[in-house]
Design a protein around this nucleic acid. Structure first.
Lengths: 213, 213
DNA sequence: TAAAGAAGTAACTGTTTAGTGCGTTAATTG
DNA sequence: CAATTAACGCACTAAACAGTTACTTCTTTA
């Protein structure tokens, strides 16, 4: 079993990164309460002691994972550069992005769910989050204003309510995909079903925001 | 401490009921993984042994609680008698009901979240659920058809997609109220905020479904 | 190259947890 | 009212769990 990868015998950064990746998976899979530190150590191929050495304890580790998750989605959003598109196109791009992000990053949803089960007590301790979201709400607010100026959006729409709604119609569908597939007797995760839902969501938001549908 | 209530020393039904109520609270508060059987016994003022006697084990207890929760919301929905109202009024009534039910029964949301974290493995075992949801989807389907006949609704709307959307815009707001209140820097649970959200949700659905907003 | 410090490990501790064995007490019925 | 049945409770177990102690091994640098 001679490894051809020249893996270092000791590499703090790599070990930290492996622990973070493993913890994200485990927290997403089982929630904060159900996640097992031993399991994280195994997945990360690290000794459990290292987790406590680098991250203090289980709760702190969860907080760091959560901060990373929020930073990741908001960073990706910034890269959309919606300000360079006509308002309607920009809005549709945002809806598509939100949906696709949730779809490709199901851990994000589970982590947020878990944090809300715990009444956001980890997020309260975080100071990185403020700036992140100020910019995000600003972005959607600017987009709405621009749309009104272009004559394509209705005036008076609250950017926070719109944000919540765009997130909701994707997030709910995906987070409840298991019970949903049973009670509605269709595979909500089939490719055609996913396409259909995205189209429905775009229609929902466009009818809500635009002056002429 | 002479009790004036003539409480029976032995009452199987009452004990069962206390256990179910306590379990619902505990599962809602901490999820399936975080819930503690000892805690349920304490809250129910019952001996832990009774839980295993009446319900088998923790997972079976969870399944029963979940079935009860779904039965409760679907039963309440049937009582709305939407078929006796003009389509637009009926739709608005359904939106208001959904919102108010989630608001008054936050355990429902947490239980469903927990079940989805576990990939709906308890619901899969349940046979009570089928009939419950067939009637529900039928109800909304009939409502949509009637609205089209009345000339107030657009044709071709999928009742399942509409159902999901009505649920989503209320459910997401409420399940994520803790993180939401932090990142948006407003108290999402303030009475004015709740009213505002309900109004926004009604507008969202009406614009989606109606021919003339 | 020696010393210091950082990376890594195995085995352990004290506690919590779901689940039980077995006895006791109250209600029911022949 | 005796005997059976059902409700209830104490005290335990075996496993799982977060977190730690005490140690070894590798890397860096004065």
């Amino acid at each position: 079993m001679a490894a051809n990868t020249p893996r270092k015998t000791r590499d703090a950064d790599a070990t930290r990164a492996r622990i973070l990746a493993a913890a994200k998976k485990e927290f997403a899979r089982s929630g904060l309460g159900g996640a097992r530190v031993d399991e994280i150590a195994d997945r990360a191929k690290a000794n459990k002691r290292m987790i406590y050495h680098y991250f203090g304890n289980k709760e702190d580790l969860f907080r760091i994972i959560l901060e990373e998750a929020y930073t990741d989605i908001r960073t990706a959003e910034q890269k959309l550069e919606l300000e360079h598109l006509p308002a309607r196109e920009a809005l549709e791009k945002l809806i598509r992005f939100t949906w696709t992000y949730y779809l490709k990053n199901p851990e994000f949803i589970t982590l947020v769910n878990s944090e809300n089960l715990h009444k956001a007590r980890h997020l309260k301790k975080s100071d990185k989050i403020d700036e992140l979201f100020r910019r995000f709400v600003g972005m959607v607010g600017d987009l709405l204003e621009r749309g009104v100026a272009e004559g394509v959006f209705r005036p008076g729409i609250d950017p926070v309510q719109l944000n919540i709604t765009i997130a909701a119609i994707g997030y709910y569908y995906l987070t409840n995909r298991f019970t949903g597939s049973i009670v509605f007797k269709r595979d909500l995760m089939a490719p055609e079903a996913l396409e259909e839902r995205l189209a429905f969501n775009i229609e929902t938001i466009m009818r809500l925001v635009c002056v002429t549908p």
